[in-house]
Design a protein around this nucleic acid. Structure first.
Lengths: 207, 207
DNA sequence: TTCATTTTTTACCAATTCGCATAAAAATAT
DNA sequence: ATATTTTTATGCGAATTGGTAAAAAATGAA
């Protein structure tokens, strides 16, 4: 009961690579400015096939947003595990995020920042689902930073201080996304990020 | 030679209040999702009148962006002059920005963050003029923070440190804009902002 | 071969988009 | 009054939008 041979005409596209292409289009244009024709062109599928496979434009967008959030999460977590100590780990994570935001990773070639920050945010006042998705993404980043800091500074910071520092880092991260989309270079952003981490979670913090 | 009585049919709208209404529509929807019909409805003008007075949709948007940047600049500068010392002045500025971002000022009732960060950013990859306008806005914020810090900490910080700290504050500001648009409350944001300032420009810095 | 199933393709739909051309209206100048 | 000038109002038009209906194609099952 693994792969029961599928009936019917076989698909001539791979779902994963197609979704990746959909993601690129939304990443560049945002939600409102992206047309299904552009997506069709970028994926090689035509509109009815897209709709049959992935639902409406909104469905596709939300699909791609959570896909992006998942990918970003594992990518940053991976980057954060190459070192030890709060300060170095946070620097590694921000550095990796900057690579992602400036098109230096496998996820994208384009320097369009964070997909959620760059595009979801804009739509949030008009659509409650989008707004909810945005707060979820933001909360996820906060939690990620908080758990790292909590773990690495066991005891030396109150829970309150941990959460505040985590949100500081998320603020910084979002600011970096905006600057990346504005065209700032990775190295400038990385210098900025490193000095920011040094002020928020100094190396001297017992790590 | 002040107001030479104008010929022709008189306008029945005020240019300033109309532009303010145009700004609200773009602020909520962003550029791409805003239609001229929506603007026409919000302003009470019809499309040909809008076009005659303010040009194309893009013209209107860029017009409103620089209008916003100017207003924001004077509003924040004013707020920053109610106190003395780098740390208190920066806190006052960020607090004022949060009021603006969350709809607590005369500029808008709506909690849609910073017009430029929230909407211009999204469009920047598709249009060189938008991208340029975005970098100009960002640079303006950097410079504003830098000149304040430079002035208040005369000598105690290198020019390099001043610029870096200024960019840190701008990163924070942009992050605050995003969270405001995501629906975060003013008081939470203000606590966050104040503690961030304390880490970037501590009170103990001789002020 | 014939049928059932799934995907692809073509074509269409109603609605909306931005911009403009043209006409009507409202004021001043002569 | 009549003409001139400026703004407003009506309405068109070509293009694009998201979505779908219907037919054609490609596979496995019988």
């Amino acid at each position: 009961m693994k792969t029961e041979t599928k009936r019917g005409r076989p698909r001539k596209f791979d779902e994963d690579v197609t979704l990746d292409r959909v993601m690129q289009v939304f990443w560049r244009n945002g939600y409102a400015a992206t047309s299904l024709d552009q997506i069709a062109e970028a994926t090689g599928l035509n509109r009815p096939s897209l709709y049959a496979a992935f639902g409406s434009k909104k469905d596709m967008y939300l699909n791609v947003i959570s896909r992006f959030a998942d990918r970003m999460h594992v990518y940053l977590a991976e980057a954060g595990h190459q070192t030890a100590g709060a300060n170095p780990r946070l620097k590694a994570i921000l550095t990796a995020a900057i690579d992602l935001y400036t098109g230096q990773t496998d996820l994208t070639d384009a320097p369009y920042g964070c997909l959620a920050i760059s595009t979801l945010q804009t739509e949030s006042p008009r659509d409650a689902e989008f707004k909810e998705a945005l707060t979820v993404v933001i909360a996820r980043m906060d939690k990620g930073f908080a758990s790292l800091i909590r773990h690495e500074t066991r005891g030396s910071m109150t829970e309150q201080e941990v959460c505040t520092a985590a949100q500081h880092l998320a603020l910084i991260l979002h600011g970096l996304s905006i600057r990346a989309r504005a065209g700032e270079t990775p190295d400038v952003l990385k210098r900025l990020a490193e000095s920011a981490v040094d002020k928020i979670i100094p190396l001297s913090n017992g790590n």
